[in-house]
Nucleic acid binder design. Sequence first.
DNA 1: AAAATATGCAACCTTTTAGTTGCCTTTTCG
DNA 2: CGAAAAGGCAACTAAAAGGTTGCATATTTT
Lengths: 103, 103
Amino acid sequence: MRDEAALFAALGDDTRLGLLTRLGEEPSSIAGLTRGGVLTRQAVTKHLYILEKAGLVTCARLGRESLWELRRQRLEDARAFLDLMSRRWDDRIERLRAHVEIS
Amino acid sequence: MRDEAALFAALGDDTRLGLLTRLGEEPSSIAGLTRGGVLTRQAVTKHLYILEKAGLVTCARLGRESLWELRRQRLEDARAFLDLMSRRWDDRIERLRAHVEIS
DNA sequence: AAAATATGCAACCTTTTAGTTGCCTTTTCG
DNA sequence: CGAAAAGGCAACTAAAAGGTTGCATATTTT
C-alpha cells in the first residue's frame, strides 16, 4: 500500500502539476508542452518520465513525436487513499464521541 | 490555487505518510512518534514541521510535551483538487465523444 | 534539588532533485 | 536528398531534502 508516497511525490511539484493540468486539457507532445513555457525540452522530458513512473501519464510514440496522455485512474488511486485516511479519522472521532457519551 | 504542490509534496514521503497514519489513530507527542521507529527524534520533528507547514497537522504544547494532531480538512483539500482534475478530464472526454457523434 | 523526560536549535553530511548544455539519432517535408 | 523538427542520452551543477550528532532549555517526578 505504501507506494502511494511516490504517487504523491510526483504530484508534489508545481511544474508537474502544471503539466498534468495541460495534459488534462488534451494529450500533447514534449515539444508542445515545452512551447510557451520557460523550461527546456529536457526538463519537461524529465518531469514527464517522473509522472510516467508514478503511473500518472502514458506515452505513445507517433511518428517522430510522442504523445503523452493523462491517466485518470491514477488520480483516482490517490483520491481513494486520501478518502481512506479521512474516513479512518472520522471513525476514530466517532468512537471517541460514543465513548464519552457512555461514561 | 497552486499551493497544492506543497501539500502533495508533504504527502509524498514514506516516513510522513507513516506519521500521518499514526496521527490518524490518535494525537501523539514527538517522543511517542519516535518510540518504536528507526528514526531519531529530530528527524521525526523535521517531518512534523513539514507536515505542519503544509497544514496537515497542528501542534499544541501541553506541559513538557507537544501534542500533534491530524487536520482532516487538509486531506479534504487535496482530495478536492484531485476530484477537480478528474472531473475536467471526464468532461473533455465527454465533449470529444459528443463531437464524434455529431460528425 | 537532582534526575529524568520532552523538546528546541544549529551545524554538518550525503543523496536527490531540478535544470542545463552539448551532441547524436530518427522522421518528415520541400 | 538535405534541412528542419522531435526526441534520446549523458555529464555536470546548484540547491533542497532527509538524517545525524551535540548541546542547551523547560517540565516533571522523586
